[in-house]
Design a protein around this nucleic acid. Structure first.
Lengths: 235, 235
DNA sequence: GTGCGCATCAACGTATACGTTATTGGACGC
DNA sequence: GCGTCCAATAACGTATACGTTGATGCGCAC
């Protein structure tokens, strides 16, 4: 162990060979989110390794990261199991989001951003509205919704907060996709997003926070209602 | 026929061999929190491996987990560097805690727990008060403080929320220890903890949440004031 | 037919080997 | 003297080998 006098400056390197671990992690995560590995599925290290043309070592490393992301569980000597969300898990996730996301909105609003800085949010609102014009395109709407929330997290100026929001957001991704066609048309939700952006632009932190909290709370209620109505136990 | 979950308490059956990865992770984490590896320090996989009598494989796995905990950074081809907290990191951490911990208090209060359920919190309050009687024992106080907050996270009934609180709490551990002797005697802080417990017992969710928020906010201000006053850039 | 026990095996957990890359020190030229 | 280039080396990233463990299936006893 050495303690350098100065921290090494973060110089940008020209080109860096992409690490296998990174590829495996990204692709596995994508496949889990896309439901290609359904919840409850058991996966073997060697299967993934051969499928992704890698050895078990980077696969294991990716598994460890995905476990901390809450997307799978490593069961010793049994391989890994893709996490399934119970209704109770959904409650937890929405409680966390109801805490973190309004805070993110408040922090963002307090910085008094102009329209330029909020471009990604405004575009997402536009895209949500466009997706509901005429024949509704629910997947386009969901993509815009996701973009809105991820950009909100990014813009809040707190990397830890952003990372935490994205983490639980990813955990709930499959559930959102699943309930997408079961919920009422998200017209109100779309309007709420727009209202939050306007409140931020108006510099009204309190209002932005409250609007967002209500939005999140309603979304959570809608989701849990669907889950209960359909008696879904695992997703 | 199902096998009992728990092994017999007598040591007739040897306990399941703990995995090396787990040991390495736990010991490394402890050493980082105890400041045995100071912030900014560069560590080599092979050093840790020989020191802990393990091979590089479990060490790498522990590194990956510790990186996601935010306690170190893996710099490709350069080993790992123990994370150093900037004043900005402290801001981030306290913003997160100011969001999550009041939520945890509110959730706990909403469950209307009795004194028995809150025993660990009450004991922590007692311990904090005891540590300030006569000659103040700051380390004992800090341990009780830590116990209070971790138990609060545990009791709130939301595992994800608890894990997130503990994660950032650990990140700030060294900073708290460092500033322990620089801050005023935590008499007020101790009283605030007690007040929160009383509000929870009284079933007053709003009050419990608000009290806690104020407590956390004051703690954050104290810490940042110390950091600024001493011109600390990295800790 | 049922249940217990042993053997076989599959998959993991860990160790180690190998190739790659970035750094460092020295030599050479200016 | 100083800067540049090259070679040696250290450390990582990945692959692979090895031992361990829990599971599965078959046979035998009852």
């Amino acid at each position: 162990m050495t303690v350098p006098d100065r921290l090494p400056e973060s110089d940008q390197r020209p080109a860096r060979a992409p690490r296998s671990t990174e590829t495996v992690y990204a692709r596995l995560k994508q496949q889990i989110l896309d439901n290609r590995y359904p919840p409850g599925a058991q996966i073997l290290e060697s299967e993934v390794a051969t499928e992704l043309n890698a050895s078990r070592t980077p696969v294991r490393e990716a598994f460890v990261r995905l476990q901390q992301d809450g997307l799978l569980e490593i069961v010793p000597r049994h391989g890994v199991r893709i996490s399934a969300l119970s209704p109770d898990d959904m409650r937890e996730i929405y409680e966390v989001l109801m805490s973190l996301e309004p805070t993110a909105v408040e922090l963002l609003a307090a910085r008094r951003p102009d329209r330029t800085e909020l471009a990604s949010l405004i575009e997402a609102c536009d895209a949500m509205e466009a997706a509901l014009q005429g024949e509704p395109d629910l997947h386009a709407w969901a993509a815009a919704d996701e973009s809105f929330h991820l950009n909100l997290a990014r813009l809040c100026g707190n990397k830890r907060l952003a990372a935490m929001i994205m983490q639980v957001w990813d955990q709930a991704h499959r559930a959102r996709m699943f309930t997408l066609s079961l919920r009422p048309l998200p017209i109100k939700s779309t309007a709420e997003h727009r209202a939050v952006v306007e409140a931020i632009l108006a510099g009204n932190c309190e209002r932005a926070r409250d609007l967002y909290f209500i939005h999140r709370k309603r979304g959570g209620h809608e989701l849990t209602a669907i889950i209960e109505r359909h008696g879904i136990q695992r997703l």
